[in-house]
Amino acid sequence: MISQRTAIRLSDGRELIYFDETPGADRTRWPDTRHLPPPPPTSQLRYDPLVDEWVAVAAHRQTRTFLPPSDKCPLCPSTREFASEIPAPDYDVVVFENQFPSFSDRVKPDEITSLTDMVPVRPGVGRTEVVCFTSDHNSSFGTLPPARVRTVLDALADRTTEMSALPGIAQVFPFENRGIEIGVTLSHPHGQIYAYPTVPPRAQAMLRAARKHAEHTGGRNLYADVLAAEQKAGVRVVAGNEHWTAYVPAAARWPYEVQLAPHRQVADIPALSDAERDAFAPLYLDVLRRFDALFGKPMPYISAWHQAVVGEGRDLGYLHLQLFSIRRAADKLKYLAGSESAMGAFVNDIVPEAAAQRLREAI
């Protein structure tokens, strides 16, 4: 659990927050000594009328750091030889504004408002943050102790609360990308948090389905009913405890996909009780170990927290974590080719029941 929270400003004005597990650290004695240029303006949102979706265009992200050597890692603690994004010589968990943000509150004064009569344009006002899970460059989330996982969860709760209160935020999305196969450009164990200015397409689809289910069932929650059905069937359940169940969805899109859901409907991470936060760590670490054990090597994955939207439809949300990998065999990846990329129609190579069985037997 977090014993001390300390916020500072980096040399370019971005916010950085230390979440310490023991009190007493004077983080202000370690200022950012770099001379950085001002942060870039925010992205541009362009409306696609053909699918009723907004697309962010963030050209400044082309120059973001790409697979630096370990002694030049911007997420490691700073040393005398190299000043990183974290000024202190050590840390537990750190969160800071992304230097190359997909969304921010820095709006160009000459922002255009349309490209054609059909394509309005607006600033991508929001927030993008980086979450460093540990100062150990060679570690991974799966090797963290349960107490550190709890610290990360508490930090995500803190950031979700603050980012949800920002003007114009529609949804807060914490996630982790792991592995170069996923497209990771920094190997240090870290995640990100996006505060979206619009409700993303996946969340919109989930809201439509949840609203339809509620209308047809007298107000029942869709995810709660799906979870209850999976618990009853049992065949796709991978593991569980008093407060959480981990299961492979019956219609999984990805070769290996697990959802971890609390047994109580809550909107977001801040709404989890202390007992639920404590119970999450051992179950999630167990599932991550099973992923790595499947093929005897680190599994590339995306870990995505689905939280309720901030505005209309919030009552329909049900917090859950979606963990999935594009690896379908020891030497094969699942590429999103024609059907998936062009049409959004997934074809899964692994039967979900078989995936669940393999994960149960992996350890």
Rank of each mutant, 00 (worst) to 15 (best):
T65M: 12
D32R: 11
T33Y: 00
R64H: 13
R277D: 07
T28L: 05
L321H: 08
Q44P: 02
V238D: 04
A56E: 07
S43V: 03
P69S: 03
R264E: 11
S84Q: 08
F133R: 11
A224E: 15
D32Y: 00
R127H: 03
H213F: 15
R327I: 03
A246P: 14
L115T: 06
V287Q: 11
V248L: 08
I269K: 12
E85G: 10
L16A: 12
A271C: 05
P352V: 15
P255S: 14
S303T: 01
I269V: 15
G168F: 02
K334F: 02
V309R: 13
V131P: 02
D20G: 10
F82V: 15
P200V: 03
L153E: 15
Y247K: 08
L272R: 15
V351P: 00
V237C: 08
P101S: 01
L336Q: 08
E276Q: 12
I182L: 06
L336T: 02
T143N: 14
P201T: 00
W30P: 11
L316G: 06
G317V: 03
T42M: 10
V93K: 11
N221Q: 09
W244S: 09
E111R: 07
T160M: 03
V351L: 12
Y196Q: 07
F96W: 04
H213W: 09
P282M: 00
F19I: 09
V121F: 06
I180D: 06
A25K: 07
A246Q: 09
S135G: 11
P37H: 13
F19A: 11
Y284A: 05
M299Q: 08
D92C: 11
V107D: 12
R127C: 00
A229V: 03
A165M: 06
P49M: 02
H188E: 07
V309Q: 14
A203S: 12
E340D: 09
S3P: 00
D136R: 05
A267P: 03
Q44M: 02
A271F: 01
A203P: 01
A157R: 06
Q62V: 04
W254K: 07
Y247C: 07
Q44R: 13
F66P: 09
E257F: 04
T134H: 02
G183V: 01
P300R: 01
L115S: 15
V266R: 13
F291E: 03
V55A: 10
D286Y: 04
R253T: 05
G13M: 08
R64C: 15
T134V: 08
V309E: 14
D286K: 10
Y223G: 05
V347F: 08
G219I: 03
I193M: 05
S139R: 06
W254P: 09
A56S: 15
A342H: 11
R264Q: 13
D48F: 01
V121R: 10
T185Y: 01
R314Q: 08
V238K: 06
A59E: 10
F66N: 15
R360E: 09
A337I: 10
Q171D: 07
P174Q: 15
F82L: 14
D26L: 10
L166E: 14
T28A: 10
G296H: 14
A88Y: 04
L321S: 08
V172R: 06
P87F: 00
V125M: 13
Q265D: 09
T6F: 00
A170C: 10
N221T: 12
D20W: 02
M1I: 09
R127A: 02
R122Q: 12
I193E: 05
T79Y: 01
L222P: 06
R14F: 00
